[in-house]
């Protein structure tokens, strides 16, 4: 009961490893830069569009005080569902962006009827941050086709940083391809904006005073004016400003 070494579990491990080797030949985890003159490079502008949509969602989450991780599910060039972290509002540590997006699909009657049997076999997922161990297995259960994400997550990441769970043989699951590094810097900047707020807590622990993201950006620019990385940040901020205008327009329309 105490010791976890059984003969049966050892056998299982050997079987699992052999299956993993086969799946590793078929599927891949690659960065965007590794694709030269392939499908993905040709459609890069399309992929970036969807990723920007995910980052928009991230900004909404940031305003609500959540960890700004957001995702978008795309079926044949159309966005079906959007999701962002809701761990604080729902008081549930498992309510990550990916699961929220799944719920959107299965709560909608039309979408539910369409994806009841085939699940998400022909859908792509665009996330700002690498899915955690839990979500990367949940994506296998949903039988997703490809996953695009921005930056790696060294603590929880299930697609390359801690484990490579998109290859692992899981019953009822299907392995999938991963493409990393899509709009990486923007995703990192989003997280930085959030964690900088956290560090400057107000003296009263229950009510946190939060700095405006814009002020932080100005400070960053001030610091990096003279350094070589200033141009890079300038480019990113310009991109972000365009995204932000979109968000504001949407909010005003609503």
């Amino acid at each position: 009961m105490d010791h976890l070494n059984n003969s049966s579990s050892c056998c299982n491990k050997i079987i699992n490893e052999s299956i993993e080797k086969e799946t590793r030949k078929q599927y891949y985890i690659k960065t965007v830069e590794e694709f030269n003159e392939t499908e993905i490079q040709e459609e890069l502008s399309n992929h970036k569009k969807f990723m920007e949509a995910a980052i928009e969602e991230g900004y909404k989450a940031l305003k609500e005080g959540e960890v700004p991780v957001a995702c978008v599910i795309v079926y044949k060039g159309e966005i079906i569902a959007r999701g962002s972290n809701k761990t604080n509002i729902k008081k549930n540590g498992t309510r990550h962006a990916e699961l929220e997006a799944f719920d959107q699909i299965f709560l909608n009657k039309e979408l539910n009827d369409r994806f009841k049997d085939s699940l998400l076999e022909e859908c792509d997922l665009y996330v700002t941050v690498e899915p955690c161990l839990m979500c990367s297995v949940a994506l296998q259960f949903c039988k997703i086709k490809r996953v695009f994400f921005g930056c790696h997550n060294d603590k929880f990441g299930g697609n390359g940083s801690v484990y490579e769970l998109n290859f692992s043989p899981i019953s009822n699951g299907r392995p999938y391809n991963c493409i990393t590094g899509l709009l990486k810097n923007q995703a990192i900047l989003l997280l930085q904006l959030f964690y900088n707020q956290e560090n400057k807590k107000a003296p009263i622990p229950n009510k946190r005073k939060r700095l405006d993201p814009e002020e932080l950006k100005k400070e960053m620019l001030k610091i990096t004016e003279n350094s070589s990385s200033s141009q890079l940040i300038l480019n990113i901020t310009q991109d972000l400003n365009s995204v932000k205008e979109k968000v504001l327009k949407d909010l005003n329309n609503k």
């Binding site: 059984n6 579990s9 498992t94 299930g158 692992s168």
Partner: peptide, 22 residues
Amino acid sequence: IMCSMALVHSRVKRVVYGSSSR
């Protein structure tokens, strides 16, 4: 694996389970 990671996210102290699986 998904559920065990969910347990990490929800900070359980102890888990007792019956039969093991592959």
